[in-house]
Structures are given as structure tokens and as C-alpha cells.
């Protein structure tokens, strides 16, 4: 089986979660009285901060999991 690259897997996860967070933010703002700039700007800031928070959590976790999986498969 082709080896999964931790960098790509991690990026998929943290970008995915951050997009969801930004999406939720956007969805909530739509219900309120906000300008589109505030909505977009806010969503972008939420996305950026979420990515920054998630990267150091997701990358080592994924790397560890894939390493463990790799070791199990080698055995």
C-alpha cells in the first residue's frame, strides 16, 4: 500500500477543521446584521487562528499515528 505523507494528511485535517470553523462563523453572521467585509474578514481571521492552533496539535499526532501504523505493518 502506498505510504501516506504525514504533511498532507495533517494539512487535510487542520485545513478542513479550520474551514469548518470559518464556515460556521460565516453561517452565524448571515443571521445577523453584518457587512460582507466583516463576515469575510472575520471568517478569514477565524480560519487563520484555527489553523495556527490546530497545526501544532494535528501534525505531531498524525506523524505519531502514521509511525505507529507503519511499525505495526512492518511487523
Amino acid at each position: 500500500m502506498k505510504q501516506l505523507k504525514p504533511g498532507w494528511v495533517s494539512a487535510f485535517i487542520y485545513i478542513g477543521i479550520s474551514l469548518i470553523a470559518a464556515g460556521i462563523f460565516l453561517a452565524v453572521t448571515i443571521a445577523g446584521d453584518y457587512t460582507w467585509v466583516a463576515r469575510a474578514g472575520g471568517a478569514a481571521w477565524i480560519f487563520l487562528l484555527s489553523t495556527i492552533i490546530l497545526m501544532p496539535i494535528v501534525i505531531p499526532t498524525v506523524r505519531k499515528r502514521l509511525k505507529q501504523k507503519d511499525q505495526v505493518e512492518r511487523r
Binding site: F25, V28, G32, A38, G42, W45, I46, L49, S50, I52, I53, P56, I57
Partner: peptide
């Protein structure tokens, strides 16, 4: 660092909404 970023996020959401 992570804590402060999480706090910055929470602060943003609080003041925004």
C-alpha cells in the same frame, strides 16, 4: 502560545458577536 491564540480567537468571537 496555543493558549494565547485560542484566547485571541475567543476574544474575537466575543467582541464580534
Amino acid at each position: 502560545i496555543l493558549g494565547v491564540h485560542a484566547l485571541a480567537l475567543a476574544v474575537f468571537v466575543f467582541w464580534f458577536f
